[in-house]
Amino acid sequence: MGQGVHVTELPGVGTRYDVDLTDDENRVSVVVRPGGTRYLYVFATRSAEPTAVLELTDEQARKLAAVLSATFYEG
């Protein structure tokens, strides 16, 4: 994976990607399950408790990814 993305295997659950936003407070982790379900963990404070956790289906994750990567927007 690219710079600043750290991959951890979670046996029996899937794969975890920790995205380093090179920012003390903000952090994002994504857990991908074999079935395609994604858990999006957002940390916006220094606390160990995530600020928000979203469970996304494969389709929802693709939609979000398209918007985030700016390959999709309505002009």
Binding site: V13, R16, D18, Y41, E49, P50
Partner: peptide
């Protein structure tokens, strides 16, 4: 672990 949001 999933429900308690402790995967990370």
């Amino acid at each position: 672990l999933i429900e308690l949001q402790r995967l990370t």
